[in-house]
Computed example of a mutant assay.
Amino acid sequence: MNIKFWGSRGSIPVSLSWRDIEHKLAKALQTAEPHNLSSEKEINRFIKGLPFSIRGTFGSNTSCVQVKGEDKKQIIICDSGTGIRDLGASLAEAINRDGPQNFVIHIFISHFHWDHISGFPFFIPAYMEGCSINFYGYHDKLEEAMTFQQNFTNFPIPLSAMGADITFNVLKLDRTYEIGGVSIKGIKHNHPGDAFGFRFEQNNKAFVYSTDSEHYDDVDRDDYPFVQFFNNADLVVFDAQYKFADTLTSKKDWGHSSSMIGIELALRSGVKRLCLYHNDPASCDESLEQHAIDAQKYARRCPYPGAKNLEVFTAYDRLEIHI
């Protein structure tokens, strides 16, 4: 499976300001003096040697992750935050080239908060005649929520006026499904209004999408259900929006978690790679980069088998991972 991130921010999309760009340029120029930048090759080498927070950005879009299995014509998507707009533009090129009848789009919705659904009205394939789009989720009002988002008060084009063939499928937590050539099951999260995580498996590889979930004192129980749900996953995408101290105080009951909880759960579950996700919109690129560095250090010091082997990193828009 190949995992591609189209939206990594939590709560609300953010963008770089002119001050942010100016700061990045100043930081880059401060380290440029000893380098020979007389050729394009040397310039590119210098840029690639800069910290990611200076030469790049963790991105602006909200939750949207693409899962590519063996069948490239089966498009699997987790959430339709603002990142799905860019994903849609990319898909539209392939659909126009090969024909809409050759693609089936499967969108799994964790919950209905704006940062997880607000991009769908801008999803180009939804306007293309002949496209097949199937929504899946564990909320009974899946179709009602997605339809309401596009009533005339909220958006000028109703969902019923989109050109694609759109269906809605309510899943059950006690079942495992085969969709798009991938095995899928879910878990309920602690989040206002309820949210759900998804585990995707194919060819003995497992990817878990677990965002917008708060973990309370029962997280230490031996039978904590997330330990089994994460078990031996090759990659877990985990909500780490807040610092651990904030989850106990000012952000308690807000429905989000921290890197510390994610790392300990991953180590208890035998997870190979942990991706910190739902990035705080208040955090700049340098803060997010330092967050990942600190999280990796914490993982190394945890008294669990395999602590030295767990890879911990922060998601950014357009990041691709093969498992």
Rank of each mutant, 00 (worst) to 15 (best):
3 I>S: 00
4 K>R: 14
8 S>M: 09
8 S>G: 07
10 G>Y: 13
13 P>G: 09
14 V>N: 02
14 V>S: 11
16 L>H: 06
18 W>Y: 13
25 L>N: 12
29 L>H: 10
31 T>Q: 11
32 A>Q: 10
35 H>E: 14
37 L>T: 07
46 F>K: 08
46 F>S: 08
48 K>G: 04
58 F>P: 01
61 N>S: 14
63 S>N: 15
64 C>F: 02
67 V>I: 15
77 I>P: 00
81 G>W: 01
81 G>V: 04
81 G>Y: 03
82 T>H: 06
84 I>A: 01
84 I>P: 06
87 L>T: 04
87 L>K: 12
89 A>E: 14
90 S>I: 09
91 L>C: 01
98 D>R: 10
107 I>F: 01
111 H>W: 11
115 D>W: 09
116 H>V: 03
116 H>P: 01
117 I>N: 02
119 G>T: 06
119 G>Y: 02
126 A>E: 11
132 S>W: 09
136 Y>N: 04
140 D>C: 14
145 A>W: 08
147 T>P: 05
151 N>M: 13
158 P>G: 08
166 I>H: 09
168 F>I: 06
179 I>R: 01
184 I>S: 00
184 I>D: 00
185 K>N: 10
186 G>D: 01
189 H>A: 10
192 P>Y: 11
192 P>D: 07
193 G>F: 08
193 G>T: 11
193 G>R: 11
201 E>F: 00
203 N>S: 13
204 N>H: 08
209 Y>K: 00
211 T>I: 15
212 D>W: 07
213 S>F: 07
214 E>P: 11
226 F>G: 03
231 N>M: 11
233 A>V: 07
236 V>Y: 00
237 V>K: 00
239 D>P: 04
241 Q>M: 14
254 W>G: 14
258 S>E: 13
258 S>W: 08
259 S>Y: 14
259 S>A: 15
260 M>L: 12
263 I>H: 02
266 A>K: 02
269 S>P: 12
271 V>S: 05
272 K>C: 05
274 L>I: 04
274 L>F: 03
278 H>Y: 01
283 S>Q: 07
285 D>C: 03
288 L>S: 03
291 H>Q: 15
300 R>A: 13
307 A>G: 08
310 L>A: 10
313 F>C: 07
315 A>G: 12
318 R>F: 15
